[in-house]
Design a protein around this nucleic acid. Structure first.
Lengths: 356, 356
DNA sequence: TGTCAACACGAAAACGTTTTCGCAAATAAT
DNA sequence: ATTATTTGCGAAAACGTTTTCGTGTTGACA
């Protein structure tokens, strides 16, 4: 069990100073060719690699990004992580993951844990509880400490930072207009409570699309589902949707703000003897495994999670680079209130079997 | 933009030494109550938190675990991560994630990147390419450097470390026996190529279960699917399975080693006019979103990914603790070849609509 | 032979902690 | 009043780097 070798050990072994070793390894021309050769050979032999922690301490940056998301067992979030990891790695960064579990407190604890030097910046999506509480002080505190944040998907105006969002509004508009185009006359909306910003935006898109086509949005056709825990009370969800269908037999099109609602709607419809897409057409938001492999496969609004992750990572790393540059220059007394960027990722409709 | 405050700054501000501050904050009784009060108040006011990097350097441990998995957009792996994160956090550890993307090279690069001080230990699942190459030197090298590894799911005998595995063999046996119990006479197996150890084990379980019941396993009923990239050539997968069904019309039961194969089989069966579960019953391995929400919902062998993650994390952290203890004791010249633990997580059959 | 660069290298500081040890002053014991 | 013991604090080392600034040795040049 050989611990990793350090500069000091190499120095002692070769009877030179630590500085000489360091310089030789970085190829400084301050050191003679002879010693450089010798040192490099020795280092290679013992597989020397500089200790990251020591470097982090010295450089006051860790080259790692903190990701903070509400839940990881979730297709959308994991694609985002994949995107982040992809560009982070390409640009020499590591990725450390924290899970808030939709809890305000865990979000804060996680942030504080990572903000103490472990990471250079955050990429995060806000937990539901935080959204409910509307308490964003921890984000602002972190930013004030000089740690940049990039928010994605679930973002909020109260925090000044770069943001990457899905074009929820237009995505919904597109979806609903697609249904209209396919001759749906009575389009229902399956959505979440309003405090989830994406839910709200998608609802607005639904309404706007209808009104664009001179159709008055009938409140009875909107089902706001209280998703305390989503996955877990599947029965309730099914029941609720079934009731909804029974009360509104006119429904011939369904737009659901997530996959689960969409496939559940299909299930219920079939149970009620309705055929898809002949009697009811369905479009969901979020293009995940479910949509692809459901029968019939589901037409969806794809969010391009990976692209979101990539963009977020690029924004963050760019900003980290910029900060460094600023510090290097004359200290920029003019407090450059650098403007923050909001990237909107366009959605795309993927047509499958649940629409005609 | 106030950088985080350090001991040094507090010391300067309060006109005491750094050591005094440090001691006061840790509540050492070496320091008078007066100064302690003063210092603690000041620290609280300025929200002092010790710098993690500095601590890591000093203590030569980072309190973070490196997770290295082939793919994150995958229900099973993300549940494992959730499990790891859960106990890691509870036990004061952070979690840093690397993705190998099933690539041998990326696996090595990632390991080396993290092994240079960034983490205290690894939890990993081996990439397919590595499995194919059968080159495990990087794992052993890491272990020799004193960095413990815990492998899960895709493990390998050639590396001496703790392991957490699913009881693939018995899971398969249970599944097949369940089908037999439900009066299936001709049970097909949809599996992967043999180099994926879990695929092999599940295949063995299938054969054993049949033989236990005095049925000769018919090679024609075994379809080994070459999943170069799984998700991406869905069409091919469907076609291949369809051919298989046509050649073997006797099939009245299907056991698939993963969800995707199972739902695809159901899709194909339905397409061929077979009804599920009346004509064909299906059981899949891996209990993910697909199984739960497919129609009909899929009877599966659940792997308890989260439990696997929790166990793995506990094993690793226990070992890290043990190491520390060893160092503390007299240096243990007797080279305690500590025996490694292999935890087997039992599977469980979750019955749903795809079986009678 | 004396002066000056160039060369090759080392000492030391810095990043932010914790901890051991030493030392003075204050208190206690004789 | 003298010695012994506590009390309260600071100096310094250590973790592993990089980098700035010296400094001694060599060779060239006048």
């Amino acid at each position: 069990m050989k611990r990793k070798i350090t500069l000091k050990q190499i120095a002692r072994e070769l009877d030179v100073s630590i500085s000489t070793v360091s310089k030789a390894l970085s190829g400084s021309k301050e050191i003679s060719e002879d010693t450089t050769q010798k040192i490099q050979a020795f280092a290679k032999l013992y597989n020397y690699k500089p200790n990251n922690i020591a470097l982090s301490l010295k450089n006051r940056k860790t080259k790692t990004i903190g990701i903070l998301i509400p839940e990881i067992v979730h297709h959308f979030f994991s694609t985002v992580i994949r995107g982040i990891e992809l560009v982070a790695n390409r640009r020499g960064y590591n990725v450390i993951v924290g899970l808030s579990n939709e809890s305000f407190t865990k979000e804060i604890i996680n942030m504080e844990m990572l903000a103490n030097g472990s990471i250079d910046g955050f990429i995060l999506s806000i937990s539901k509880e935080t959204l409910l509480k509307q308490d964003y002080h921890h984000f602002n505190a972190t930013i004030n400490q000089g740690i940049p944040i990039v928010m994605f998907d679930r973002v909020v105006n109260e925090v000044d930072c770069d943001k990457v969002i899905v074009d929820d509004f237009n995505g919904s508009v597109k979806a609903v207009e697609k249904l209209l185009e396919k001759q749906c006359k009575s389009i229902a909306l399956l959505t979440t409570m309003d405090y989830v910003s994406v839910g709200r935006l998608r609802t607005q898109g639904y309404i706007a699309a209808l009104e664009n086509n001179d159709i008055h949005a009938d409140p009875d056709l909107i089902l706001k589902i209280n998703d305390g825990l989503d996955e877990n009370h599947l029965e309730d969800l099914e029941l609720e949707i079934e009731q909804f269908f029974k009360i509104n037999p006119s429904i011939d099109g369904v737009f659901a703000v997530n996959e689960l609602y969409a496939v559940t709607a299909m299930k219920v419809a079939r149970k009620l003897g309705l055929s898809i897409p002949d009697d009811v057409q369905v479009i969901g938001f979020t293009d995940g495994v479910l949509s692809k492999h459901a029968t019939p496969s589901l037409t969806t609004v794809s969010q391009h999670g990976q692209k979101i992750g990539e963009q977020a990572a690029n924004l963050l790393i760019d900003r980290l680079g910029a900060e460094e540059a600023e510090e290097a220059e004359y200290t920029m007394s003019n407090e450059r209130r650098s403007d923050f960027i909001k990237v909107v990722i366009e959605t795309e409709i993927i047509e499958r079997e649940s629409t005609k």
